[in-house]
Nucleic acid binder design. Structure first.
Lengths: 194, 194
DNA sequence: TAATGACCAATTTCGTATTTTAGTCGAAAA
DNA sequence: TTTTCGACTAAAATACGAAATTGGTCATTA
Protein backbone atom coordinates (compact mmCIF):
# COMPACT_ATOMS: atom_id res chain seq x y z
CA UNK A 1 0.00 0.00 0.00
CA UNK A 2 1.60 3.25 -1.11
CA UNK A 3 2.21 6.26 1.04
CA UNK A 4 -0.63 8.45 -0.19
CA UNK A 5 -3.19 5.71 0.08
CA UNK A 6 -2.12 5.03 3.64
CA UNK A 7 -2.41 8.69 4.51
CA UNK A 8 -5.95 8.70 3.18
CA UNK A 9 -6.90 5.53 5.01
CA UNK A 10 -5.56 6.90 8.26
CA UNK A 11 -7.33 10.19 7.79
CA UNK A 12 -10.61 8.39 7.12
CA UNK A 13 -10.14 6.10 10.08
CA UNK A 14 -9.47 9.08 12.31
CA UNK A 15 -12.52 10.93 11.09
CA UNK A 16 -14.84 7.92 11.20
CA UNK A 17 -13.65 7.22 14.73
CA UNK A 18 -14.23 10.76 15.82
CA UNK A 19 -17.41 11.77 14.03
CA UNK A 20 -18.83 8.51 12.70
CA UNK A 21 -19.34 7.48 9.09
CA UNK A 22 -22.27 9.66 8.17
CA UNK A 23 -20.95 12.80 9.77
CA UNK A 24 -17.63 12.46 7.98
CA UNK A 25 -17.38 14.25 4.65
CA UNK A 26 -15.02 13.45 1.84
CA UNK A 27 -13.76 17.03 2.00
CA UNK A 28 -12.92 16.49 5.61
CA UNK A 29 -10.98 13.32 4.88
CA UNK A 30 -9.11 15.09 2.07
CA UNK A 31 -8.24 17.94 4.39
CA UNK A 32 -6.96 15.68 7.17
CA UNK A 33 -5.01 13.58 4.69
CA UNK A 34 -3.70 16.75 3.08
CA UNK A 35 -4.66 15.68 -0.40
CA UNK A 36 -7.14 16.97 -2.94
CA UNK A 37 -10.55 15.35 -2.80
CA UNK A 38 -10.09 13.98 -6.32
CA UNK A 39 -7.02 12.06 -5.18
CA UNK A 40 -9.13 9.98 -2.84
CA UNK A 41 -11.08 8.68 -5.80
CA UNK A 42 -7.97 7.36 -7.51
CA UNK A 43 -7.65 4.92 -4.61
CA UNK A 44 -11.26 4.33 -3.56
CA UNK A 45 -14.28 4.28 -5.78
CA UNK A 46 -16.65 5.60 -3.13
CA UNK A 47 -17.05 6.54 0.49
CA UNK A 48 -18.53 3.14 1.22
CA UNK A 49 -15.54 1.38 -0.34
CA UNK A 50 -13.31 3.35 2.01
CA UNK A 51 -15.30 2.12 4.96
CA UNK A 52 -15.03 -1.45 3.71
CA UNK A 53 -11.27 -1.11 3.27
CA UNK A 54 -10.87 0.22 6.79
CA UNK A 55 -13.06 -2.53 8.23
CA UNK A 56 -11.03 -5.12 6.33
CA UNK A 57 -7.83 -3.85 7.89
CA UNK A 58 -9.49 -3.92 11.28
CA UNK A 59 -10.64 -7.50 10.77
CA UNK A 60 -7.11 -8.59 9.89
CA UNK A 61 -5.81 -7.05 13.10
CA UNK A 62 -8.63 -8.66 15.04
CA UNK A 63 -7.87 -12.08 13.63
CA UNK A 64 -4.27 -11.77 14.74
CA UNK A 65 -5.27 -10.77 18.23
CA UNK A 66 -7.83 -13.58 18.42
CA UNK A 67 -5.35 -16.13 17.12
CA UNK A 68 -2.75 -15.14 19.67
CA UNK A 69 -5.32 -15.47 22.45
CA UNK A 70 -5.59 -19.20 21.79
CA UNK A 71 -3.19 -20.98 24.13
CA UNK A 72 -1.12 -23.57 22.31
CA UNK A 73 -1.78 -27.21 23.04
CA UNK A 74 -5.08 -26.63 24.74
CA UNK A 75 -8.49 -27.72 23.47
CA UNK A 76 -10.05 -24.79 21.67
CA UNK A 77 -13.25 -25.28 23.52
CA UNK A 78 -11.54 -24.45 26.80
CA UNK A 79 -10.32 -21.15 25.47
CA UNK A 80 -13.41 -20.25 23.47
CA UNK A 81 -14.65 -17.75 25.99
CA UNK A 82 -11.19 -16.27 26.42
CA UNK A 83 -10.98 -15.74 22.66
CA UNK A 84 -14.35 -14.07 22.38
CA UNK A 85 -13.56 -11.97 25.41
CA UNK A 86 -10.36 -10.88 23.73
CA UNK A 87 -12.20 -9.97 20.57
CA UNK A 88 -14.82 -8.04 22.49
CA UNK A 89 -12.17 -6.22 24.46
CA UNK A 90 -10.21 -5.49 21.30
CA UNK A 91 -13.28 -3.95 19.73
CA UNK A 92 -14.17 -1.95 22.80
CA UNK A 93 -10.68 -0.49 22.84
CA UNK A 94 -11.04 0.87 19.34
CA UNK A 95 -12.79 4.19 19.04
CA UNK A 96 -13.75 3.27 15.49
CA UNK A 97 -15.83 0.28 16.53
CA UNK A 98 -17.44 2.12 19.43
CA UNK A 99 -18.44 4.98 17.20
CA UNK A 100 -19.77 2.73 14.46
CA UNK A 101 -21.78 0.60 16.91
CA UNK A 102 -23.30 3.79 18.23
CA UNK A 103 -24.13 4.93 14.72
CA UNK A 104 -25.90 1.66 13.99
CA UNK A 105 -28.09 2.10 17.07
CA UNK A 106 -28.71 5.81 16.82
CA UNK A 107 -28.87 6.50 13.09
CA UNK A 108 -28.95 3.08 11.49
CA UNK A 109 -26.78 4.08 8.54
CA UNK A 110 -27.18 1.14 6.12
CA UNK A 111 -23.53 1.09 5.05
CA UNK A 112 -22.43 0.93 8.67
CA UNK A 113 -24.93 -1.80 9.49
CA UNK A 114 -23.51 -3.83 6.61
CA UNK A 115 -19.96 -3.18 7.74
CA UNK A 116 -20.63 -4.22 11.33
CA UNK A 117 -22.45 -7.32 10.15
CA UNK A 118 -19.42 -8.26 8.09
CA UNK A 119 -17.29 -8.05 11.22
CA UNK A 120 -19.67 -10.43 12.97
CA UNK A 121 -19.49 -12.76 10.00
CA UNK A 122 -15.73 -12.78 10.20
CA UNK A 123 -15.85 -13.68 13.87
CA UNK A 124 -18.28 -16.49 13.15
CA UNK A 125 -16.07 -17.76 10.38
CA UNK A 126 -13.06 -17.66 12.65
CA UNK A 127 -14.88 -19.73 15.23
CA UNK A 128 -16.15 -22.08 12.56
CA UNK A 129 -12.64 -23.05 11.50
CA UNK A 130 -11.63 -23.61 15.10
CA UNK A 131 -14.65 -25.79 15.67
CA UNK A 132 -13.86 -27.87 12.60
CA UNK A 133 -10.40 -28.46 13.97
CA UNK A 134 -11.77 -29.31 17.39
CA UNK A 135 -14.10 -31.89 15.89
CA UNK A 136 -11.30 -33.42 13.85
CA UNK A 137 -9.17 -33.67 16.96
CA UNK A 138 -11.97 -35.37 18.82
CA UNK A 139 -12.40 -32.50 21.27
CA UNK A 140 -16.00 -32.02 20.23
CA UNK A 141 -18.76 -34.33 19.13
CA UNK A 142 -19.68 -34.22 15.47
CA UNK A 143 -21.88 -31.23 14.67
CA UNK A 144 -22.43 -28.72 11.91
CA UNK A 145 -19.57 -26.20 12.32
CA UNK A 146 -21.52 -23.38 10.67
CA UNK A 147 -24.55 -23.66 12.91
CA UNK A 148 -22.42 -24.33 15.95
CA UNK A 149 -20.26 -21.27 15.50
CA UNK A 150 -23.33 -19.20 14.76
CA UNK A 151 -25.02 -20.34 17.96
CA UNK A 152 -21.93 -20.02 20.13
CA UNK A 153 -21.34 -16.51 18.93
CA UNK A 154 -24.98 -15.58 19.41
CA UNK A 155 -25.04 -17.08 22.86
CA UNK A 156 -21.98 -15.10 23.80
CA UNK A 157 -23.54 -11.88 22.53
CA UNK A 158 -26.81 -12.69 24.27
CA UNK A 159 -25.01 -13.14 27.56
CA UNK A 160 -22.76 -10.12 27.22
CA UNK A 161 -25.16 -7.60 25.72
CA UNK A 162 -28.80 -8.69 25.90
CA UNK A 163 -28.87 -10.15 29.38
CA UNK A 164 -27.79 -6.90 31.00
CA UNK A 165 -30.73 -5.05 29.43
CA UNK A 166 -32.91 -6.40 32.20
CA UNK A 167 -30.58 -8.04 34.71
CA UNK A 168 -27.31 -7.60 36.50
CA UNK A 169 -24.50 -7.89 33.96
CA UNK A 170 -22.49 -11.09 33.99
CA UNK A 171 -18.74 -11.08 34.27
CA UNK A 172 -16.26 -12.86 32.06
CA UNK A 173 -15.92 -15.93 34.28
CA UNK A 174 -19.64 -16.37 34.78
CA UNK A 175 -20.11 -16.26 31.03
CA UNK A 176 -17.35 -18.81 30.52
CA UNK A 177 -19.03 -21.11 33.01
CA UNK A 178 -22.48 -20.63 31.47
CA UNK A 179 -21.31 -21.42 27.96
CA UNK A 180 -19.61 -24.50 29.25
CA UNK A 181 -22.68 -25.60 31.20
CA UNK A 182 -25.17 -25.16 28.42
CA UNK A 183 -23.20 -25.71 25.30
CA UNK A 184 -20.55 -28.22 26.15
CA UNK A 185 -22.04 -30.29 28.94
CA UNK A 186 -25.73 -29.81 28.18
CA UNK A 187 -28.33 -29.71 30.88
CA UNK A 188 -30.05 -32.96 30.07
CA UNK A 189 -29.65 -35.82 32.57
CA UNK A 190 -26.68 -38.01 31.79
CA UNK A 191 -26.29 -41.70 32.58
CA UNK A 192 -23.74 -40.94 35.23
CA UNK A 193 -26.26 -38.68 36.97
CA UNK A 194 -28.36 -41.61 38.04
CA UNK B 1 -65.35 -6.26 31.84
CA UNK B 2 -68.46 -4.35 30.86
CA UNK B 3 -69.96 -4.14 27.44
CA UNK B 4 -68.76 -0.70 26.44
CA UNK B 5 -65.21 -1.34 27.54
CA UNK B 6 -65.16 -4.51 25.49
CA UNK B 7 -66.46 -2.69 22.44
CA UNK B 8 -63.65 -0.17 22.80
CA UNK B 9 -61.00 -2.85 23.28
CA UNK B 10 -62.19 -4.71 20.21
CA UNK B 11 -62.28 -1.55 18.13
CA UNK B 12 -58.75 -0.69 19.19
CA UNK B 13 -57.53 -4.20 18.52
CA UNK B 14 -59.08 -4.10 15.07
CA UNK B 15 -57.53 -0.75 14.24
CA UNK B 16 -54.09 -1.60 15.66
CA UNK B 17 -54.15 -4.83 13.68
CA UNK B 18 -55.07 -3.06 10.51
CA UNK B 19 -53.14 0.19 10.64
CA UNK B 20 -50.65 -0.33 13.44
CA UNK B 21 -50.39 1.57 16.70
CA UNK B 22 -49.01 4.86 15.50
CA UNK B 23 -51.35 5.18 12.54
CA UNK B 24 -54.40 4.55 14.69
CA UNK B 25 -56.06 7.64 16.10
CA UNK B 26 -58.27 7.82 19.14
CA UNK B 27 -61.00 9.34 16.98
CA UNK B 28 -60.80 6.32 14.75
CA UNK B 29 -61.15 3.93 17.65
CA UNK B 30 -64.11 5.92 18.98
CA UNK B 31 -65.75 5.79 15.59
CA UNK B 32 -65.27 2.04 15.16
CA UNK B 33 -66.46 1.42 18.72
CA UNK B 34 -69.36 3.78 18.15
CA UNK B 35 -68.69 5.77 21.30
CA UNK B 36 -67.62 9.33 21.94
CA UNK B 37 -63.90 9.84 22.27
CA UNK B 38 -64.33 11.04 25.84
CA UNK B 39 -65.82 7.68 26.76
CA UNK B 40 -62.59 5.92 25.91
CA UNK B 41 -60.86 7.94 28.60
CA UNK B 42 -63.24 6.74 31.28
CA UNK B 43 -61.85 3.26 30.74
CA UNK B 44 -58.26 3.90 29.66
CA UNK B 45 -56.04 6.71 30.82
CA UNK B 46 -54.09 6.94 27.56
CA UNK B 47 -53.51 5.40 24.17
CA UNK B 48 -50.52 3.53 25.54
CA UNK B 49 -52.59 2.05 28.37
CA UNK B 50 -55.01 0.73 25.75
CA UNK B 51 -52.15 -0.98 23.95
CA UNK B 52 -50.97 -2.52 27.21
CA UNK B 53 -54.46 -3.76 28.00
CA UNK B 54 -54.76 -5.37 24.59
CA UNK B 55 -51.34 -6.96 24.88
CA UNK B 56 -52.24 -8.29 28.33
CA UNK B 57 -55.30 -10.00 26.92
CA UNK B 58 -53.22 -11.43 24.12
CA UNK B 59 -50.67 -12.78 26.57
CA UNK B 60 -53.38 -14.53 28.56
CA UNK B 61 -54.64 -16.22 25.41
CA UNK B 62 -51.10 -17.13 24.47
CA UNK B 63 -50.42 -18.72 27.84
CA UNK B 64 -53.50 -20.91 27.45
CA UNK B 65 -52.45 -22.03 24.02
CA UNK B 66 -48.91 -22.71 25.19
CA UNK B 67 -50.09 -24.61 28.23
CA UNK B 68 -52.34 -26.82 26.16
CA UNK B 69 -49.45 -27.59 23.82
CA UNK B 70 -47.62 -29.37 26.64
CA UNK B 71 -48.44 -33.05 26.45
CA UNK B 72 -49.38 -34.48 29.86
CA UNK B 73 -46.97 -36.88 31.51
CA UNK B 74 -44.08 -36.07 29.25
CA UNK B 75 -40.86 -34.34 30.25
CA UNK B 76 -41.19 -30.66 29.46
CA UNK B 77 -37.86 -30.64 27.82
CA UNK B 78 -39.10 -33.01 25.12
CA UNK B 79 -41.93 -30.70 24.26
CA UNK B 80 -40.04 -27.43 24.63
CA UNK B 81 -39.66 -26.91 20.94
CA UNK B 82 -43.28 -27.86 20.29
CA UNK B 83 -44.39 -25.26 22.81
CA UNK B 84 -42.29 -22.49 21.35
CA UNK B 85 -43.39 -23.48 17.89
CA UNK B 86 -46.99 -23.24 19.04
CA UNK B 87 -46.38 -19.81 20.51
CA UNK B 88 -44.65 -18.62 17.35
CA UNK B 89 -47.44 -19.98 15.20
CA UNK B 90 -50.06 -18.45 17.46
CA UNK B 91 -48.39 -15.06 17.10
CA UNK B 92 -47.97 -15.36 13.36
CA UNK B 93 -51.65 -16.10 13.03
CA UNK B 94 -52.60 -12.86 14.73
CA UNK B 95 -52.67 -9.82 12.51
CA UNK B 96 -52.07 -7.70 15.60
CA UNK B 97 -48.70 -9.23 16.35
CA UNK B 98 -47.61 -9.18 12.72
CA UNK B 99 -48.49 -5.53 12.38
CA UNK B 100 -46.80 -4.58 15.65
CA UNK B 101 -43.62 -6.49 14.79
CA UNK B 102 -43.53 -4.66 11.50
CA UNK B 103 -44.00 -1.36 13.25
CA UNK B 104 -41.08 -2.08 15.57
CA UNK B 105 -38.82 -2.75 12.59
CA UNK B 106 -40.04 0.00 10.29
CA UNK B 107 -40.91 2.85 12.62
CA UNK B 108 -39.56 1.81 15.98
CA UNK B 109 -42.45 3.30 17.95
CA UNK B 110 -41.18 3.21 21.55
CA UNK B 111 -44.53 2.16 23.05
CA UNK B 112 -44.73 -0.75 20.64
CA UNK B 113 -41.15 -1.79 21.32
CA UNK B 114 -41.97 -1.88 25.02
CA UNK B 115 -45.14 -3.86 24.40
CA UNK B 116 -43.42 -6.47 22.25
CA UNK B 117 -40.63 -6.78 24.78
CA UNK B 118 -43.19 -7.47 27.47
CA UNK B 119 -44.57 -10.31 25.37
CA UNK B 120 -41.07 -11.77 25.15
CA UNK B 121 -40.69 -11.41 28.89
CA UNK B 122 -43.92 -13.31 29.43
CA UNK B 123 -42.73 -16.13 27.22
CA UNK B 124 -39.44 -16.29 29.10
CA UNK B 125 -41.27 -16.34 32.40
CA UNK B 126 -43.52 -19.11 31.17
CA UNK B 127 -40.52 -21.19 30.22
CA UNK B 128 -38.82 -20.35 33.49
CA UNK B 129 -41.60 -21.91 35.53
CA UNK B 130 -41.56 -25.01 33.36
CA UNK B 131 -37.83 -25.33 33.78
CA UNK B 132 -38.12 -25.03 37.55
CA UNK B 133 -40.60 -27.86 37.51
CA UNK B 134 -38.40 -29.91 35.22
CA UNK B 135 -35.45 -29.50 37.58
CA UNK B 136 -37.56 -30.45 40.59
CA UNK B 137 -38.72 -33.56 38.79
CA UNK B 138 -35.16 -34.49 37.96
CA UNK B 139 -35.66 -34.07 34.24
CA UNK B 140 -32.95 -31.46 34.04
CA UNK B 141 -29.70 -30.91 35.84
CA UNK B 142 -29.61 -28.09 38.34
CA UNK B 143 -29.23 -24.72 36.66
CA UNK B 144 -30.42 -21.16 37.05
CA UNK B 145 -33.98 -21.19 35.65
CA UNK B 146 -33.90 -17.48 34.76
CA UNK B 147 -30.73 -17.68 32.71
CA UNK B 148 -31.72 -21.01 31.24
CA UNK B 149 -35.09 -19.83 30.02
CA UNK B 150 -33.53 -16.65 28.71
CA UNK B 151 -30.94 -18.60 26.73
CA UNK B 152 -33.36 -21.21 25.44
CA UNK B 153 -35.74 -18.56 24.21
CA UNK B 154 -32.92 -16.60 22.62
CA UNK B 155 -31.53 -19.68 20.96
CA UNK B 156 -34.94 -20.47 19.55
CA UNK B 157 -35.31 -16.95 18.18
CA UNK B 158 -31.77 -17.04 16.80
CA UNK B 159 -32.53 -20.23 14.94
CA UNK B 160 -35.95 -19.19 13.68
CA UNK B 161 -35.28 -15.56 12.77
CA UNK B 162 -31.60 -14.67 12.68
CA UNK B 163 -30.23 -17.76 10.97
CA UNK B 164 -32.37 -17.28 7.89
CA UNK B 165 -30.99 -13.77 7.36
CA UNK B 166 -27.95 -15.35 5.74
CA UNK B 167 -28.76 -19.03 5.31
CA UNK B 168 -31.50 -21.41 4.29
CA UNK B 169 -34.25 -21.28 6.87
CA UNK B 170 -34.50 -24.22 9.26
CA UNK B 171 -37.71 -26.13 9.71
CA UNK B 172 -39.44 -26.99 12.95
CA UNK B 173 -37.90 -30.44 13.29
CA UNK B 174 -34.38 -29.30 12.53
CA UNK B 175 -34.71 -26.64 15.19
CA UNK B 176 -36.02 -29.18 17.68
CA UNK B 177 -33.05 -31.39 16.97
CA UNK B 178 -30.56 -28.54 17.21
CA UNK B 179 -31.84 -27.33 20.55
CA UNK B 180 -31.66 -30.85 21.84
CA UNK B 181 -28.15 -31.34 20.51
CA UNK B 182 -26.68 -28.17 21.87
CA UNK B 183 -28.70 -27.44 24.92
CA UNK B 184 -29.70 -30.76 26.35
CA UNK B 185 -26.95 -33.11 25.31
CA UNK B 186 -24.13 -30.64 24.90
CA UNK B 187 -21.41 -31.06 22.32
CA UNK B 188 -18.55 -31.76 24.68
CA UNK B 189 -17.14 -35.30 24.70
CA UNK B 190 -18.84 -37.54 27.25
CA UNK B 191 -17.32 -40.47 29.08
CA UNK B 192 -19.38 -42.90 27.06
CA UNK B 193 -17.92 -41.43 23.87
CA UNK B 194 -14.57 -42.96 24.58
C1' DT C 1 0.77 11.81 -15.59
C1' DA C 2 -0.72 12.24 -11.06
C1' DA C 3 -3.01 15.55 -8.36
C1' DT C 4 -6.25 19.02 -7.67
C1' DG C 5 -10.32 21.81 -6.37
C1' DA C 6 -14.10 24.26 -8.76
C1' DC C 7 -18.23 22.47 -10.13
C1' DC C 8 -22.75 19.78 -10.39
C1' DA C 9 -26.67 16.94 -9.45
C1' DA C 10 -28.70 14.94 -5.79
C1' DT C 11 -29.66 14.65 -1.19
C1' DT C 12 -30.14 16.66 3.37
C1' DT C 13 -31.22 20.26 6.41
C1' DC C 14 -33.87 24.02 7.93
C1' DG C 15 -37.51 27.26 8.82
C1' DT C 16 -42.24 27.68 8.87
C1' DA C 17 -47.05 27.26 7.71
C1' DT C 18 -50.44 23.84 8.10
C1' DT C 19 -52.58 19.83 9.73
C1' DT C 20 -53.27 16.24 12.87
C1' DT C 21 -53.84 14.24 17.25
C1' DA C 22 -53.95 12.88 22.30
C1' DG C 23 -56.19 14.28 25.86
C1' DT C 24 -59.68 17.76 28.44
C1' DC C 25 -63.89 19.52 29.94
C1' DG C 26 -68.34 21.66 30.14
C1' DA C 27 -72.71 20.36 28.62
C1' DA C 28 -76.23 17.03 27.21
C1' DA C 29 -78.32 12.68 27.87
C1' DA C 30 -79.60 8.86 30.59
C1' DT D 1 -76.36 11.76 39.72
C1' DT D 2 -73.75 9.44 36.65
C1' DT D 3 -72.40 8.45 32.11
C1' DT D 4 -71.51 9.88 27.50
C1' DC D 5 -70.24 12.93 24.33
C1' DG D 6 -67.77 15.77 20.86
C1' DA D 7 -66.09 20.62 20.32
C1' DC D 8 -61.88 22.49 21.83
C1' DT D 9 -56.77 23.11 22.75
C1' DA D 10 -51.97 22.73 23.22
C1' DA D 11 -48.55 20.06 21.53
C1' DA D 12 -46.73 17.21 18.12
C1' DA D 13 -46.40 15.69 13.46
C1' DT D 14 -46.26 16.80 8.65
C1' DA D 15 -45.70 19.13 4.34
C1' DC D 16 -42.95 21.87 1.61
C1' DG D 17 -40.00 25.10 -0.56
C1' DA D 18 -35.62 27.45 0.05
C1' DA D 19 -30.97 27.06 1.25
C1' DA D 20 -27.00 24.52 2.36
C1' DT D 21 -24.33 20.43 2.12
C1' DT D 22 -22.19 16.53 0.08
C1' DG D 23 -20.54 12.55 -2.85
C1' DG D 24 -18.58 12.23 -6.90
C1' DT D 25 -16.65 14.20 -11.64
C1' DC D 26 -13.54 16.24 -14.77
C1' DA D 27 -11.09 20.03 -17.07
C1' DT D 28 -7.06 22.24 -15.63
C1' DT D 29 -2.58 22.42 -13.50
C1' DA D 30 2.07 21.49 -12.00
Amino acid sequence: MNDKKLKIINAAKKSFSHFGYKATTMDQIAKIAQVGKGTIYTYFSSKEEMLKAIIDLFVVEMRDVAESAIPRRQPFIKSFNEVLHTITKFQSEHELMIKLSQEVKEIGTPEVIAAMKSVEDEICEFIEVKIETAIERGELRKCDPKITSFLMFKMYVNLVNDWKERHEPLDKDQIAELINTYFIEGIGMKNEDY
